[in-house]
Structures are given as structure tokens and as C-alpha cells.
Nucleic acid binder design. Structure first.
Length: 581
RNA sequence: GCGUUCGUAGCUCAGCUGGAUAGAGCGACGGACUUCGAAUCCGUAGGUCGCAGGUUCGACUCCUGCCGGACGCACCA
């Protein structure tokens, strides 16, 4: 069963074609959920814009469209209102049948895409020998949710964790390891490596002799000196252990298979630069090899370059990114590229995409999307830091989320077993941490607040999880009583029943919106609305104590579908549900 | 200086790519538990959508200019 949104769009498109000819077949019928349930369930706003294009009064266009509209038994009424809104109210019989169809569908009406992309999603990107911190959380969580959603939509998703595992800083790190006799074999944790980073940096700045040796060590690393490479590998292995641990605790779907660090592209740097030169895209400037995409002006009105090769002959991140985009399009055959990277790098990606177009790698057949996001702010409105002004480690953030969630579970469900408490606290804590990040429009900064994100009121993970828990609770009781849901006869007479039923049919559109916009908060807003409608339904429509068996089994089925929608929606965001909390 | 981005209720945020009377949560005030989890629900009060113009049947949404915040503008990523 195709979803209602698509069904209506198709029907209106046909009506447009029939009324005004095939040249208008591509007109977006502007089908939306009704602004107010009093108007109906869905509305089409195309009459106004089409009226302008045709030079006809919108009311007349609306009338023509309605005349040519064939909705069969879908709608009980189609009305024209105001300047030319076309309001559609679904027929109850159709609504009930649509829900029955939903019940047997594990995808809840979400169609598999007919145009699957191979899409590389670039996200998380921590740096070797540095613990992950709040600066990594948004990329990691948003990128993971988008990966899950694109995968669910039917695309082939290639997760690309662009690990910072190359560069001059490794000279200092490795030289310092040599000095201290560390070879990575003694199992020191990443905390030690964090110290290692700080100490080696300090020595590099303070000790000229050390700095010189560090520079030589960089050369050794680049030329493949075995001992240097061994130490370098040990650093990376230790760092990955830390990152994987964080991903596992967060429930992020990144694994060893997804690391494609900067070093992965080393062998491609030379060919990439060579191709850019051969194509005349890259030119010499101030001793460096640069690409100057047109239209980018710097401080003095000078053009802004992408530096392919530094004046010292080395390669920097600009060329690594060029090599990566080339590789993803030419070698991996990606038709869509998604970069989940903070908004300060907007210009860098504008330059990168422009350069990739100049080189002929990025064509109209490939969609390259930069997915920027804002910062996490403390309650003082400034960058989120510890009280002493330190960067907040991800591991500490996770610890605190779990602790606070555990406190809530202890207070509200004291009779639960300890194992269950751990599991529930994890679902709530990690859910809250992720949901707060996903539910805010990603382009904006957001203010971090433990109390708000862990609250059971408002647009939070616990609120959604609790709606699911209430549903599970009903089913436990129903099972005990031997009651079965009847998905073929969901009652829609009560306003709360009907509102919930209609909202369930909007699930596919909510998912589609995220696939289009790469804005996970749109799904969050939908799920919050759904949970809210369920809670209202729950208050006004008794399920197990319904007046008659038919209503009871029908409402039970409605609860079941709402529960599945919540669980599926949350899972697409990377958030778990639990049966009790 | 140039560029990007944000500014919606006291606070935290939505507003579906130009549509109907701008919505939610918190906080305030007032209600609802002998019934499926009150971890919830229902209601009231609260907004010149930063400011000023413009485009149009219609602007929180698009354009221009200001104000305010954040960020970015060549060899660090």
C-alpha cells in the first residue's frame, strides 16, 4: 500500500494534467498535512501558485482541479476554502483499510526508493591520540542517524570515518614515544595518549632540539621507515580502541570497517595533484600548487585557493579531501556524497565541491551535500565547557548521562532488577543525549541542559520512550487476559482515535522529509506529535476497559501500530526503546 | 573589509522550502487519579516573528539595507 501523501500527490498531478495539459505535469501539487484538523486531513495548495502562472483566479483553478480529481473512495469530502485551498478529508472506510494495510507492513508504509544511490556519509572524524570530546558529538550522532535513514530508504550507504591519522603532529608524538620508551605494547589507555599529545606538543614548542628531531621523524614516517610506522600503527590501534568503545557505548553504528583516515588517501595524493595539473585546473601560486575556484574572495579581495601542494612540497588536508572526493566518485561510484562537518568549514566545502566540478569529477549525476551543524552551548550561552573551562570529554558526557538516567530509574522504578535498571538507564541516557542533538535544527547552535533533555515532558527522548512503555504495558495486560488486537477494524469515531490514526499515515512522509533535507529534527518533530496524540488518546479512550470487545481489539491494534511507529522512528535515529522504565 | 550563518512567548525550541487565526515544552495560574503507568492529560494567561523598506492575492519564510551574536577568509585540520 503506497502512502497517502504520495497517493494524493499523484492524484492531484493527474488532475492538473487533465485540466491544463501535460506541460503542467511536473507542477508540485503542494500537498501538505492540514494546518488545522478542522479543515480536513490533507490539503493541496497548488491552486494559488498555478493560478498565478495561468493568469486565472485561484478559486477557478481550484474548482477545475477538484472537477478533474479522481480520488475514488479515498476521500469523504473535498472542499475549496479561502483563496483556493483544497481540503481533503479521508473517508473513514479508507482510513480503516489503510491502517489494516499498515499492520502487516514492517516498514509502516515507507517505500523502498526506486532510485537507490551509492552514498558516502562522512562523519565523526576523531583525531588519533586525542580523546573524543563534545566537538565530535554532533557529527557522530547526526551522521549516524542520517546513515541509518538513508540505508532504510534503500540506499547503499558507505560510512566514511575520516580519521585524523596523518600530519606533522605525528612527528612529535612518535619522537616523544621513542624518548619515553613507549612502544604501544604495554596497553596504556587513551588517557595516557592524551597526555602524550600534550607533552609532545609542549616539548615541540619549548625544545628546539626535540622539534628538529620531530621534523625528521615526520620525514621518516612519510618515507615508510619501519620502526616509525610501527609506533604510528600502535598509536592508531590504541586510539581506535578508545573510539570504538565510545561508539559502542553510544550505540553508534561505526566499526573498524568504516575507518578511512587521512593516511588511506596517501597513495592517491600524487595522482590527484597530477590530474589537476594535467587538466589545467591547478596552477602555481606563491610557490604552492593551487586551485582557484571562481567567485571566492578573501581578505584583500584576493581569490581563495584550495592548496593542492604546499610550497615545501608536502600535501595538506585540502588535497586529501580532493583525493577522497575523487576516489569516492570515480572508484567507489558514489552518486551522492554527504559530509557531516561543522558549519565553520562551509567555505572549505564550497571550495572543494567547486574544485571537484572544475576537475570534472563532480558532475550533475552526483549530488554532493555539505551537512553543516551548529555548536553545543552551555546554559550560559557560550561554548559548552567544564566549569574550569576545559573541553568536555565524550566519555565524561556519557558517564554523566548514564548516571543521571540511573538516578531517575532508581527513583521511579525502585523495584526493577539491577540488570534491568542498567539497561533502561542506558536507553534513557543515551537516548536523551542523542535526541537533544537530533531534535534541534542542526544548523543552529543549541543550549545543552541535562534537566530538559531528561525530562518526561516536552520534545525529549524519555517522553517518546515513555509513550512506547505505556503501550507495552497495555499489551502485557492484554496478553495476560488473552486479548488480541484486530488490525482490520480500528475504530476512528472518537476524535482522539481518528487523529492518531491519521497521524500514523504520515509516517512515510516524515521519513521522506529527512531523506530530502538531511534534517533529522523533522522526524523528531513528527514522533513527538505522534507520541503526544497517543497520550491524548490514552487519556480519553480506554483500551482494555473499552465498552465493547470490537472497540477494545481495534484500539489495541491502534496502540500496536503507534508503538511500532515510535520504535521504528527512534531506531532510525539510533535510539533504543524499552518495555518498562 | 568581504563572506557565511543565526535572531520567533520570561526561558528552551518547532513552524513541512510562499499559504488559512504563528505552535509546543518549561515556568505562572486553574483543573483531572476507586479504571490500561498522574513518568500523563485538559484549560487560561503570555509574541509588533531583531528593526526598516521591498516583491505578491498572501511573507516568520524570498530580496535590499541596517542592528546584534557566532563563524570563516593561503600552505594548521
Amino acid at each position: 500500500m503506497s502512502d497517502v501523501q504520495t497517493l494524493l500527490e499523484t492524484a492531484f498531478q493527474s488532475a492538473i494534467t487533465r485540466a491544463y495539459g501535460p506541460e503542467y505535469a511536473d507542477t508540485d501539487p503542494l500537498v501538505r498535512s492540514s494546518a488545522d484538523a478542522a479543515f480536513g486531513d490533507w490539503q493541496a495548495n497548488v491552486a494559488m501558485s498555478l493560478g498565478k502562472k495561468l493568469g486565472k483566479p485561484p478559486r477557478a483553478v481550484a474548482e477545475a482541479l477538484v472537477k478533474h480529481l479522481d480520488l475514488g473512495t479515498v476521500a469523504s469530502s473535498v472542499d475549496i476554502a479561502g483563496p483556493g485551498f483544497i481540503n481533503v478529508k479521508l473517508a473513514d472506510a479508507f482510513l480503516v483499510a489503510a491502517l489494516a494495510g499498515l499492520d502487516g507492513d514492517p516498514r509502516l508504509g515507507v517505500a523502498q526508493t526506486s532510485h537507490p544511490d551509492t552514498v558516502a556519509v562522512d562523519y565523526s572524524a576523531p583525531n588519533v591520540a586525542k580523546e573524543m570530546h563534545v566537538g565530535h558529538i554532533r557529527s557522530t550522532i547526526i551522521g549516524d542517524a542520517l546513515s541509518r535513514m538513508l540505508e532504510f530508504a534503500g540506499h547503499r550507504v558507505l560510512r566514511r570515518n575520516h580519521l585524523g591519522d596523518w600530519g606533522t603532529q605525528f612527528g612529535q608524538l612518535i619522537e616523544h614515544m621513542v624518548d619515553r620508551g613507549l612502544d604501544g605494547s604495554d596497553g596504556h589507555g587513551i588517557g595516557d595518549l592524551n597526555d602524550l599529545y600534550r607533552q609532545s606538543k609542549a616539548r615541540f614548542d619549548a625544545e628546539p632540539d626535540f622539534a628538529e628531531r620531530a621534523r625528521r621523524r615526520v620525514v621518516a614516517l612519510q618515507s615508510g621507515d619501519p620502526e616509525t610506522r610501527r609506533l604510528w600503527s600502535a598509536l592508531i590501534a590504541e586510539s581506535k580502541r578508545h573510539f570504538n568503545e565510545i561508539y559502542k557505548r553510544l550505540g553508534v553504528s561505526l566499526s573498524d570497517a568504516d575507518y578511512f583516515g587521512e593516511s588511506f588517501y596517501n597513495d592517491m595524493l600524487e595522482p590527484t595533484a597530477g590530474e589537476l595539473v594535467a587538466k589545467g585546473v591547478a596552477v602555481q601560486s606563491e610557490g604552492a600548487l593551487c586551485v582557484f575556484p571562481p567567485g571566492f574572495k578573501g581578505r584583500d579581495g584576493a581569490p581563495v585557493p584550495l592548496i593542492v601542494k604546499k610550497s615545501d612540497g608536502g600535501y595538506g588536508y585540502d588535497n586529501t579531501d580532493l583525493a577522497a572526493i575523487r576516489h569516492r566518485i570515480l572508484d567507489l561510484g558514489c552518486s551522492r556524497l554527504v559530509y557531516v562537518v561543522g558549519s565553520p568549514q562551509k567555505q572549505h566545502f564550497d571550495l572543494l565541491f567547486a574544485a571537484a566540478r572544475m576537475a570534472g569529477w563532480l558532475t550533475d549525476a552526483v549530488r554532493a551535500e555539505y551537512v553543516p551543524f551548529g555548536s553545543v552551548l552551555g546554559e550560559d550561552g557560550k561554548m559548552f565547557k567544564t566549569r574550569s573551562g576545559e573541553v568536555i570529554k565524550l566519555t565524561d558526557l556519557i558517564d554523566e548521562a548514564l548516571k543521571r538516567a540511573r538516578d531517575i530509574v532508581d527513583a521511579k522504578a525502585p523495584d526493577m532488577t539491577d540488570d534491568d535498571k542498567v539497561a533502561v538507564a542506558r536507553a534513557i541516557g543515551m537516548g536523551a543525549l542523542k535526541y537533544v542533538d537530533l531534535s534541534n535544527d542542526r544548523i543552529k547552535d543549541y543550549v545543552f541542559s541535562w534537566d530538559r533533555m531528561l525530562a518526561f515532558e516536552g520534545n525529549t527522548a524519555p517522553y517518546l520512550q515513555n509513550a512506547y512503555v505505556r503501550i507495552r504495558s497495555i499489551f502485557r495486560k492484554a496478553d495476560e487476559a488473552g486479548l488480541r488486537p484486530n488490525p482490520d477494524a480500528v475504530p476512528v469515531a472518537e476524535p482522539a482515535e481518528r487523529a492518531l490514526a491519521v497521524e500514523l499515515l504520515r509516517f512515510p512522509d516524515a521519513v521522506a522529509q529527512v531523506e530530502r533535507s538531511l534534517e533529522p529534527h523533522r522526524l523528531c518533530t513528527y514522533l513527538y506529535g505522534l507520541a503526544s496524540l497517543f497520550h491524548s488518546f490514552y487519556e480519553s479512550c480506554p483500551v482494555l476497559a473499552a465498552k465493547d470487545p470490537a472497540t477494545r481489539s481495534g484500539r489495541l491494534a491502534l496502540c500496536g501500530m503507534a508503538g511500532r511507529a515510535l520504535a521504528l522512528g527512534l531506531s532510525l535515529l539510533g535510539i533504543d526503546t524499552v518495555d518498562r522504565m
